[in-house]
């Protein structure tokens, strides 16, 4: 289980997305991105942590060098790659961290404690229930397509993108409809519609660790605001 609470993760989401609206000096962006990477280490995911630190480093160096590239098509492409995609890097780092360390039950529990209404919590939990199945569904559908002689190679998929999309979407959605009916039965017979107050087995606590990580984030945020002002 993650050592960082969902509350802090919400803070990270807001912070990372807020960055998209401002242009900050490169060293500050680098510091903020490394701060995001540090959460992987805090949660003991050392290898992942280094993985993201390396990617961050590649983009930092790339961004620095990109300004030196010539003013032609290739130069612009390099510039776009590092600066354009680099802009999204903090969001990706945060996204990867949160999706890798958060249990759906933690998220639901937190949302309930924040008094988010049921009509948001239930569809959201169903959505998370579906995500992990999509990869397996996709694999099965691709296999089925190969037996029918449709888009047997990856190249074919790109040659007829619309056709391919259709052949993937139709069974994917049909299947989702069937699963949704079954899920409705299973959850209704387990009391999902109970109007009384709900409880959670999982405890979500805002700890000292959360506080100190958030404080670091706030300092960086303050720095960013100071620069922007």
């Amino acid at each position: 289980m993650s050592r960082i609470s969902v509350y802090t993760k919400f803070f990270l989401i807001v912070f990372a997305n807020g960055l998209l609206f401002f242009t900050l000096p490169d060293p500050l962006v680098l510091a903020i991105t490394l701060y995001f990477c540090s959460f992987q280490f805090v949660d003991g995911r050392i290898e992942r942590g280094w993985h993201w630190v390396c990617i961050t480093a590649v983009f930092a160096v790339g961004t620095y060098l990109a300004y030196l590239t010539p003013d032609n098509l290739i130069g612009h492409y390099v510039l776009f790659f590092f600066v354009g995609l680099g802009k999204l890097l903090p969001v990706v780092v945060v996204g990867a961290y949160i999706s890798g360390t958060t249990k759906v039950s933690e998220l639901i529990c937190t949302l309930r404690r924040l008094h988010v209404p049921q009509w948001i919590v239930i569809p959201l939990s169903v959505l998370f229930r579906f995500f992990p199945t999509i990869r397996n569904d996709y694999r099965q559908i691709r296999m089925a397509m190969k037996f029918r002689g449709i888009a047997t190679t990856t190249g074919d998929m790109f040659r007829h993108p619309v056709r391919t999309m259709e052949f993937i979407y139709v069974p994917l959605l049909n299947n989702a409809t069937n699963v949704a009916t079954d899920l409705a039965s299973a959850s209704l017979t387990r009391g999902l519609t109970d109007p009384g107050p709900k409880t959670s087995l999982i405890q979500v606590r805002f700890t000292l660790l959360d506080a100190s990580m958030c404080l670091m984030g706030l300092i960086l945020m303050g720095g960013a605001l100071y620069v922007v002002m």
Binding site: K103, V104, S105, S125, F128, R129, R190, D194, K198, L201
Partner: peptide, 16 residues
Amino acid sequence: FTTDVRSELAFPLENM
């Protein structure tokens, strides 16, 4: 309905 065994077992009681 949930994604891990513990939560799946707790689910009916949480609803209650």
